[in-house]
Amino acid sequence: MRRLAAAVMALACVAPAARAAQGDAPVDLELVLAVDVSYSMDVEEQQIQRDGYAAAIVSRPVLDAIGQGLIGRIAVAYVEWAGADDQRAIVPWRLIDGPDSARAFAAELAAQPLRRSFRTSLSGALSHGVRLFENNGYDGLRKVIDISGDGPNNQGAPVEAARDEAVERGVVVNGLPLMLKRQTFGFVDPTELDVYYRDCVVGGPGSFVLPVRAVEQFPEAVRTKLVMEIAGRAPDPDPGPAPERPVTRPASADAPHGVCSDGERLWRERFGE
């Protein structure tokens, strides 16, 4: 019996190394950061978004969350997306296990030129994100797509179908809706983007929405969201609005449901396509 127990323990210790030797490195989390670069995002917003992620990944709260994981490392890919056929991994999968690898990731991200493109396909971004987990060389305890943007789906497959497929494959989808612009007549956007994200975009166990309503909220929002995703923490109940801080909303919050086809409908009404 003692020999059997010793053999089981030895196998448990060797298994992660064996997976790593085969190219599947064990990590606590495989994380796709999917970032909107459609023309509705101006250059200033894009730079703030890029700087926010670069700063968050090297921040002490994020590094502490990584270090406190069962394995102590995560894998991250940074994807920019716009229309249905426009998704680019500008920083492909990278292993982050401490300050040095985090700084290398941030430097690689900061070195990429900014770009903008046409249309908004959340469904395309989610489907692309799901494919990135296939044969990526990592074996994560959890898989998460962290998607940010400032508008609804207006091209490609229905967003809720792409979300449901991701969840069926064991991927959690969290959302960072950027509500930085005041609504104007004819602007192709639903009235409450955070409600749209909650009802149509995010999904999976513990999924949540973290809306950003002011530019100065963005750095804290990104840090908060990354820490929650790395630690696998479910959001706390919504304490009510606080103008100086972003408010986390669980995906299961009891509120009026948005219409998931709003973006497509509003686009057709304005542009006839």
Rank of each mutant, 00 (worst) to 15 (best):
R2S: 11
A10M: 11
P16R: 01
A17R: 14
V27T: 01
D28S: 05
E30N: 09
V32K: 01
V32W: 03
Y39M: 05
E44D: 13
Q47V: 14
S59D: 04
Q68N: 15
A77Q: 05
E80L: 00
E80T: 07
A82Y: 03
A82C: 00
D85W: 12
R88M: 04
R88W: 13
P99L: 09
A106S: 10
A106K: 10
E108T: 12
L109H: 12
A110H: 04
P113G: 07
F118D: 15
A125P: 06
S127K: 10
R131D: 10
E134C: 10
N136M: 01
G137W: 04
Y138K: 08
I145H: 05
D150T: 05
D150L: 10
G151F: 01
N154I: 09
A157M: 12
P158R: 07
R163A: 06
A166V: 11
V167I: 10
E168C: 04
R169M: 08
V172D: 00
V172I: 14
V173H: 05
M179R: 13
V188Y: 06
V195K: 11
F208P: 00
V209A: 11
A214F: 01
K225A: 08
M228R: 11
E229C: 09
A231G: 15
A234R: 14
P235M: 06
P239L: 08
A242N: 15
P243W: 09
R249I: 15
A253R: 05
S261G: 12
G263L: 09
R265W: 06
R268S: 13
